[in-house]
Design a protein around this nucleic acid. Structure first.
Lengths: 244, 244, 244, 244
DNA sequence: GATGAATGAGTTTTCATTCAT
DNA sequence: AATGAATGAAAACTCATTCAT
């Protein structure tokens, strides 16, 4: 998925979160979660460019990437970046929210399909993660923030949806029974990490092969029992700054 | 420092962190690739502390981590760090060399066992990678160096050893035939990445479960054919600065 | 805005803050020294709010206070501030003119009373200064401008009026003879300075007690001779930028 | 008092606070309150130069004075300033502590003399404040910090000492009975404020005359009753940030 | 060999000012 | 007339690096 595509899909999700289910894509839709005076068209465009640039820079350089580098990539002045995101944390937080929103979106889509086609629901989910890995920037290196309320809520909701997906798949005996939602999230997180110094296509090819093997390992026939799984809540409990 | 030496010194640290005082190694092993006057005992200790601190900081903050932060973690003065590593690149390079040395070491150990116990050789290798994930720091974010001759040689040699391992395993029909050394290296790289904000034990538990499923997916019974594999040389060709 | 106009507008604000809705003044008095088209009602209101906010900010933060902070306090957009005051100096200048106008106003009122009640004229003047200390902002910290012609004229006129007041009071033997107009201005200047971190009422209480003691010291009976007084002209001579 | 003099007297006080009562002046005495590795001689010199420059700049420009301006005045690099004072607040705080230390020092000296010469004790105190007004920078404009524990303690101790001084003076009937320690502190605070745009000698002359009149107002013969006094504790209670 | 200190060169952040709506 | 937005320039702050002890 190219950057533009990523941006669009993020906007889509955000529209849905506000309940405006309808009309495909509308440029200039106000992108904030909290109700705010609608951004002017040019400002909204700048904001998305900054986020796209931030995603790219964070992948390449970590979350310590110079902000003026990000502004330069976005083609805006550094002060414009600051106008939208009062500090680095706010920017990181929004990138995280967007990323987790995409994950939730994919989980929901896969879950919806699970009823009719349980055998491919998980595959759909994980491969979609690989596809949009550039936009995820999920487990950000050095990200000082993940205790954002919105992020935590997205994570929780994602886990719920994935458990539902797993339930349907298990019922169809299309997945080994000892795999949990946390395992699927872990797989997403690992596979979306940048593999620096590789061109995107190669990195994606490697990630795809990895997920393919992992998917084969998920089939019931493969079942060699797994070690015990950490509960999702145990993990979420740690999702706050400075815990590692 | 020769390769073995590097590995040993990393292991030493690991052992020390766990309280098991090592005995088998001569203190003061010359630490550079080029022959150098043996370091004084305290100097050698400082050097290892700096490397350990650097590994930790790089994992948490990326390779742009402030050098004086690293010095502080190591409990030494910044000037002492500079005495050992003339610049950031030298430090990154040594961390990489140490990390890749550990990978090669593990590959060799597993390969040696492959003759007698082909069914567990791959498992041994991948699980050992999970175990030492904290020390690997393999695909460093923002690392400007990977074209270090020593690193490239280690990577090449590792690929050779792993192919040998795979050959033995394939011969025993203990692995699907379409998996390559590159897939094993990819799995190592993905699984060793830090999952920030999680305590190490939880992160390792998640990584272990992931690798377990992956291992199950590696078994011949699982085989659903994989997409085509990038050649190892194609990958190595990109392992130089600024290729993205 | 002429001098009377300036004074009036400040008084208006003061009155409004106290809830006593003034009646005696025409809205929309032209606000600049040079004749200008009468401001629209809302524009005039904005202008006064900016000046009030500037007084407050200058007292708290000095004259280097951020202009957008002032705009925020005034509840207007920064660009609106700029429409009225082309630069920081213009704003400072107006605050000074307003402040010195109030001083002159008070001096004139006290002087008028001096003929009939010489014993309380000085007291009236100094206590009125304490009362309106929040509006004076007289000796602005870091103010780059005091060589404004209007300000200098106000200062000169004030000195003249106060000397006249002193003459009447001296004639009635109601003040020690060695006190000059400069001493009264100094007392005003000192006592109007903010005492940061104190609530206004406490600060005013302290200032009032101080002036009360000072007033007692002004009585002829107290007279222990003072050191020589700097001439007013000597002081005015320094009232220009960058003299320290 | 010139800057060098001010520096010396500050050092004196600080030595005393640590109990090392003795030997007049020792350059290079470690200047920090909390026990710290003694500063190297050149570093200590730099530190005092920074503080002297800060006092000057704060008087001229308020506490928002550019830090690199202060560094320039002190003849050190901005990073050297930051090495000693991690942020603007730390610098302001130290200037305050130094200032209040000087006040306490003067209060103590005057109090010591009060037993033998009660008639001049208050005069000694207030005139010493005028003399060292350049070093006091007492009620800093826009100073965001005054809730520093050390500052509060100094203020409290000063009030105690001044009450003792007043008790002795009252016993000798050398002061009106309704004046309190708070009034003396207020007088110090008012009189030390910079009068910008005036050369120091003129400003000091004006301040001296003001204090002379005030002193005359303090004599028992002058007594016209004062309005009620705020308690010192009431004032100290407000000495924290953002209270005005 | 190790360290405290200093500094030049960034990077981050804020602010004054202008422009387009 | 008022405002949201953008920006260049400045100030705050950090960091890599060197020097003297």
């Amino acid at each position: 998925m190219d950057i533009v595509g990523a941006v669009v899909s993020v906007e889509l999700i955000q529209m849905r979160r506000k309940g405006s289910e309808g009309t495909k894509v509308a440029r200039g839709t106000p992108p904030r979660g909290t109700a705010q005076p609608r951004l002017r068209a040019d400002a909204a465009r700048n904001r998305e460019q900054v986020l796209a640039a931030a995603r790219q820079a964070f992948r390449e350089l970590g979350t310590a990437a110079p902000l003026d580098d990000i502004a330069r990539r976005a083609g805006v002045n550094i002060a414009t970046l600051y106008r939208r995101f009062p500090d680095r944390d706010a920017l990181i937080r929004q990138v995280l929210v967007d990323g987790y929103s995409l994950v939730l979106e994919a989980a929901r889509a896969a879950c919806d399909k699970a009823a009719s086609e349980p055998s491919t629901a998980i595959e759909d989910f994980l491969l979609s993660q690989v596809e949009q890995r550039e936009a995820l920037v999920l487990p950000l290196i050095g990200g000082p923030v993940t205790d954002d309320a919105e992020v935590l809520e997205l994570q929780r909701e994602t886990a719920v949806v994935l458990e539902r997906l797993l339930a349907a798949t298990r019922a169809a005996e299309a997945v080994r029974p000892d795999v949990t939602a946390v395992d699927l999230i872990t797989a997403s997180a690992l596979v979306c990490r940048p593999l620096p110094h590789l061109p995107p296509s190669t990195a994606t090819a490697l990630a795809t092969r990895h997920i393919r093997v992992f998917l084969d390992g998920l089939r019931p026939s493969a079942s060699r029992p797994l070690p015990s799984a950490p509960e999702h809540e145990e993990i979420v409990a740690h999702l706050r700054p400075d815990t590692a």
